[in-house]
Design a protein around this nucleic acid. Sequence first.
DNA 1: CCGTGTGAATGAGTTCACAGCC
DNA 2: GGCTGTGAACTCATTCACACGG
Lengths: 219, 219
Amino acid sequence: MRSHEDGRTASQIPEVVVMRLPLYARALAVLEKESQEVVSSNELAARLQVTPAQIRKDLSYFGRFGKQGRGYNVGHLLSHIRRILGLDRQWSMALVGVGRLGRALLHYGAFAAEGFKLVAAFDSDRRQIGTQIDGVVIQSMEELSSTIRTREVNICIIAVPALKAQEVIDMVVQCGVRAILNYAPIACRVPGDVCIREIDPICALQSMTFHLKVPRINR
Amino acid sequence: MRSHEDGRTASQIPEVVVMRLPLYARALAVLEKESQEVVSSNELAARLQVTPAQIRKDLSYFGRFGKQGRGYNVGHLLSHIRRILGLDRQWSMALVGVGRLGRALLHYGAFAAEGFKLVAAFDSDRRQIGTQIDGVVIQSMEELSSTIRTREVNICIIAVPALKAQEVIDMVVQCGVRAILNYAPIACRVPGDVCIREIDPICALQSMTFHLKVPRINR
DNA sequence: CCGTGTGAATGAGTTCACAGCC
DNA sequence: GGCTGTGAACTCATTCACACGG
């Protein structure tokens, strides 16, 4: 269904592989904190509940990081993966929609801890504009375009009601944002060169109940 | 020919298919609200950014819901999907971990609106125990086991720190919970008959930066 | 004609299995 | 002996294309 090639951007690395790298990075960070120097694909796989072959194959897309007979140096592999993912720098994010969910996200410390800095927040509610949450001043939607450009925002978090989401997404895409973390429960349309990830707990719940439905045999 | 919705064996339906059904349900609910009576796989696909064949194939795992030359009756298909997913009933959830994130989840109205009722909340922080948030009294971890059983909790939401998550998950699994929505940033181990879904915005961000990394050519 | 339902064909992703190196 | 890196084999998922029914 992908509309058409835009050659240049189209990475030949499977998206599933890219999505697993952060998991590897996280596990390696734990090992590093535990002062473990070397890890085998077997050990890493056991921690992550995947197969060792999966890890080796995934890594092989990017280079040869291991030593035969020994395994991977934890620190080296971690910094390689971080560089591959672009985690060796800070990223600037803007939040659109400062309702309950948006406020919770503004307070959420883990983004900054991982190098994702929330530098701006926007809402259409006049009463909120000008107020400050965790050091971020809430701005009007009219200011969105100029602020995103001047503050060089790379990523937008969408936390507006479903009905407004597509419109807001179109706006931020128009401003040159190419990565969107979408909390709105909607299947939205973005150009092929824009990356979007959905956070949708309702869908997650609704797909789990499919399995619960069947009555338990041995309780 | 596939076994129909009430088979009781470990489902032979691909998990990807199950995970798409909630999206179909959501789109159909919108159409129903718009008073549209009939929809073709083509139209539905256009709304959801998937292929029409995908939708038809997915639905064919569960039965034959359409009419040739016409399409699907919106209301009928929606109620079929809801029944397939087990959304034609209420589900009881418990929240473990009432930190900032947990509190935000307790306030979140959409769960209840979709038939997922938060009936209990647990935390290890003594100061919080006994206090009430949105009608739910926060209980101690010691009460978890008995409350989950007496209140017949089907689903647990995990919102505890990463270091505590596996331990808490083991506890709730021990209490017979077979569905877990995990907000803790950890790859956790559950028995094969337990369904778990991860909500992990950090991973989502970290996999998007892979694509951002490449400098934009035409800004 | 139009659109579903579905085998068959294609494509993507995972696992196997082993050569090669430490 | 142990473990990586990787083509080949295999499994799983998506798309095609068309027979069939409204």
